[in-house]
């Protein structure tokens, strides 16, 4: 069992937890992920590491409450325990030779983008960050990004905070203004990453995307997380989760992500009904 040392709501749908897992905390690097189970009947879900504290032996996770499992996770209180927590899995984000980077995060993906931005900042690279949210209420981690970015642009879809529009607009402007990024790293919804790649491709700026497909074991055994990258089958858990954005088949990844949409809808409804009963 793994103790929830800290729990904090970042916005109405996004929660941060620090989980006591000293072995994982000692090893985890930006770009890697963990797998957890909330309780004994629980499914295994992957979450990308949002930071760790090696002294306290804790690993930070930030998750959006979207499905049955994240809803269950969100009912756990600070000081309570979750069943299983394993990692760090996957390969760390590649940083070598990159002097100037643009980090493009979307929604809860910003939670994963932050440690990547921090790592580049610590390595002395010039970091430009573009983070996008649907609206002001969903904004997270602005101060943290400010602290590690040489330039930060906040976007909201409805213009309720920062600049109105999508993340690809300021990205394109920056590129056209002559910012010579060695690399663009993007983490967020698949559709956003697809458009980021479409934006950088004409300029041929190397672009890394962080994929988060359906997974079970996360150690290269089940093959559920397979993607087509450069025409070849790759496994996000051992070959990724970072991939060359120009080579990823996003349409296929988006289609595969909906395989259990029906089941997930039922799970959500069941959980919500359960919750209503408990409240009574």
């Amino acid at each position: 069992m793994y103790r929830i040392a800290v729990k904090r709501e970042l916005n109405p749908t996004v929660t941060m937890m620090e989980i006591e897992a000293p072995l994982v905390a000692a090893k985890a690097q930006a770009g890697q992920f963990i797998i957890l189970r909330v309780d004994a009947d629980g499914e295994r879900i992957p979450l990308t590491v949002a930071g760790c504290d090696t002294l306290k032996g804790t690993v930070k996770i930030i998750f959006q409450v979207v499905g049955g499992t994240t809803m269950r996770l969100n009912t756990k209180k600070q000081g309570e325990y979750i069943q299983d927590f394993v990692g760090p899995l996957g390969c760390p984000t590649r940083t070598d030779g990159i002097k100037k980077v643009c980090i493009v995060g979307g929604g809860v993906g910003c939670a994963i983008a932050l440690p990547v931005a921090q790592k580049f900042h610590d390595l002395g690279a010039e970091v430009h960050s573009i983070i996008g949210f649907r609206n002001k209420d969903l904004l997270i981690l602005e101060d943290e990004f400010k602290a590690c970015s040489d330039k930060l642009t906040v976007m909201t879809d409805d213009g309720s905070y920062g600049r109105k529009g999508v993340v690809t607009e300021p990205l394109k402007e920056a590129i056209e203004a002559g910012e010579n990024y060695d690399e663009v790293i993007t983490i967020g919804p698949l559709i956003m990453m697809k458009f980021v790649v479409a934006t950088t491709k004409p300029y041929n700026i190397p672009t890394t995307v962080s994929m988060n497909p359906i997974m079970i074991d996360g150690t290269g055994m089940c093959g559920g997380c397979r993607l087509t990258v450069g025409g070849k089958t790759k496994f996000a858990c051992v070959d990724g989760p970072d991939f060359n954005g120009f080579e990823v088949d996003f349409d296929e990844a988006m289609a595969r992500g909906t395989m259990y949409a029906d089941f997930e809808r039922k799970e959500r409804e069941e959980f919500c009904n359960l919750f209503k009963k408990e409240v009574k």
Binding site: I216, C222, G223, T233
Partner: peptide, 19 residues
């Protein structure tokens, strides 16, 4: 092979036996 409804045996069996 990437269509929805294609499994590796490992995934299909793991979902069922372990999970």
């Amino acid at each position: 092979e990437s269509l929805k409804g294609v499994y590796s045996a490992n995934e299909f069996l793991t979902r069922n036996n372990l999970m």
